[in-house]
Design a protein around this nucleic acid. Sequence first.
DNA 1: GCCAACGTTGGC
DNA 2: GCCAACGTTGGC
Length: 153
Amino acid sequence: MNYWLLKSEPEAFGIEHLQALPGQTTHWDGVRNYQARNLLRDQIKRGDRAFFYHSNTAMPGIVGLVEIAREGYPDYTAFDPADEHYDPKSDPGRPSWYMVDVKLVRPLKRTIPLTELKAHAAALGDFALIRRGNRLSVMPVSAAQWEYVLGLE
DNA sequence: GCCAACGTTGGC
DNA sequence: GCCAACGTTGGC
C-alpha cells in the first residue's frame, strides 16, 4: 500500500462535503497538471490511503484520511463544455486527464496545520508538501511520513 | 490583496 | 528548442 496527499480548496470541496455524500465517496476530478495526472493514472492504486489537505484557506492543513476506492479513469468533466474544468484538447478516445474515486476513512480529530508540519520538517525528511514552492495537488507521502503525521494528531 | 514560484503558451 | 509573457497556485 502507498500513501498520498490530495489537496482541495475547502470552499470548492472540503471534507465536510465528502462527509455529507452518500457512501462518503466521490470522484476526485479537476486535476489539470501533468505530473499529478501521471500519479492519478499510473501510480495510485485501489486501497491506497491519502491525506485530505485543505489549501487556500485561513488554516491550511491536513484534515482527514481517505482511501482510494477506484483507480485512475478518464476525468469526464474535461469533456463537458459546461464544466469549469472543461478542456477541449482532451479527446474521449485519448483522454488527457484522469481521476480516482476516494472514500472517507475518517476526519482527523483536529486539523494538523501546515505551520506545524513545517515545524517538524527535520523529522519528516523530504516531504513534498513542504518543499519550497511546491504546488502539486497530488503528491506522494512515504510510509514513515504517514505514521509520523498521524502521531501528531 | 500581494507576490513568489511554477507551468504553459506561442513567437521566433 | 529557447525564452519572454502570461496565467495559476496558494501561503501569508
